[in-house]
Design a binder for these strands. Structure first.
Lengths: 229, 229
DNA sequence: GAGGAGGTGAGCCACTCGGCTCACCACTAA
DNA sequence: TTAGTGGTGAGCCGAGTGGCTCACCTCCTC
């Protein structure tokens, strides 16, 4: 073996160890296959549940061989975890908190955002499957809680705290207040859907539910000036 | 064949057609086996989910042969349905509504009853499996909703309507008010448990959640006299 | 044009599943 | 004593499961 060959091999080894670049093309193809797998798997999992979805069907729906599927996701559980995690990836940009000063308007804004989130297609199905599989995959439930529920809970909490500081609201416990607000809404627009497949309140009913929740919050936490408007 | 025999057979035939009496003994044995099956199946279903529980394991846990299981429940789905339906059978006697006149005390009573129900062992697991299987067995979800949620919702609604009629509360829409009250409570004490396996607020936190929900209801729907006490 | 990546198709493995059947047993009631 | 019930154990069936492997192909990149 000549010196130049040795050098060549050493350089390649270093490069591989550092970046493991399998060339632009191969990475692109792999990424395409991967997204196609994730998309198909998401659809099937939400449709048929975890046990009800076989890897064979996922591979078929994704237009991919079973061997490829196993190269990308070593196990069914890993695929499931990737699905749930990536579902929440979309929501990168966080909407800004409403300005303090108008408690009614601020709560209405947040409330409408919340119902819009809950009304997203697939949201109910996602909750359904995650709830079902929490005993087997506890981290999945924590992920869903952290990415799906906490952001809204936190935005309400921080907003209420800001209103409290501004004197536009009067409350000791912003956490409890936030829980109450979101609970009043979701107990009407979302949770019944977990048991009743056909629970689909029309827009006016949903709007009313948010408005009524806001009114109740105003009655409890509003300062005199904010009660009326 | 003598006349008496003919008569005898005819009478037996009529009796069988009317009541299908397989003798006291056999009925008792069958009932025992049945309850033992239902108990074992309930435990296993709540533990491992619908797909995760095999009929073989149920039969084994019940101390019953597979053949017997099939004689009592023609199909796995039928067994599952029986489980869920019988889970709610216990709650025969309905607790009486609080007397109108003290909105705070009445809501507190109902709120504490509600958290006691939600804290029952197996309640979370039951909701979990029912929610998971609603797409496959919609009637199960409706049963759960009708037997598990409606009674409390109705009791709050009727109680609030009574308070309204008595002048101790002021509200147009008792349904919305009831949804709000129960939503404020369950959004803290129950629904997080669907995603977080270890969500188990201590008694003081639960009590506080109910109290705070009552205070919010009083602020919104109480009449001046009831605000303070 | 050679190297090497990722994808492919087929197939193996050991298992489990729900559903169903049947000959036989234990036991009570008449 | 006998008829008839419900329970029993064993076993068969076809289908499907997740996991895994391997030789082979395709196609870009250097």
């Amino acid at each position: 073996m000549e010196v130049s060959q040795v050098t060549h091999l050493a350089v390649r080894g270093i490069l591989e160890g550092m970046t493991a670049q399998p060339s632009e093309y191969h990475r692109r193809v792999a990424a395409q296959k991967r997204t196609s797998i994730v998309e198909a798997a998401t659809r099937l999992f939400l449709d048929s549940g975890y046990d009800g979805t076989s890897l064979a069907r996922i591979a078929e729906a994704a237009g991919v061989s079973r061997a490829t599927l196993f190269k990308q996701f070593t196990t069914k559980a890993a695929l499931f975890e990737a699905i749930v995690t990536e579902y929440w990836k979309v929501d990168d940009e966080e909407a800004p908190l409403p300005e303090p000063g108008n408690l009614r308007a601020g709560l209405e804004t947040i409330g409408r955002r919340y119902v819009a989130l809950l009304a997203q297609p697939g949201m109910a199905a996602l909750f359904r499957i995650v709830i079902a599989e929490v005993p087997r995959f506890p981290e999945i439930g924590e992920t869903q809680f952290r990415l799906g529920k906490m952001p809204y809970f936190e935005s309400v909490r921080r907003y209420l705290a800001a209103e409290n500081a501004a004197g536009t609201a009067r409350l000791d416990d912003a956490e409890t207040a936030a829980t109450q607000f979101l609970g009043m809404i979701s107990n009407f627009v979302f949770w019944p859907r977990m048991l009743l497949a056909r629970w689909e309140p029309d827009d006016s009913a949903v709007t009313n539910a948010v408005d009524q929740a806001v009114l109740t919050m105003l009655a409890r936490y509003g300062t005199p000036g904010t009660h009326g408007a």
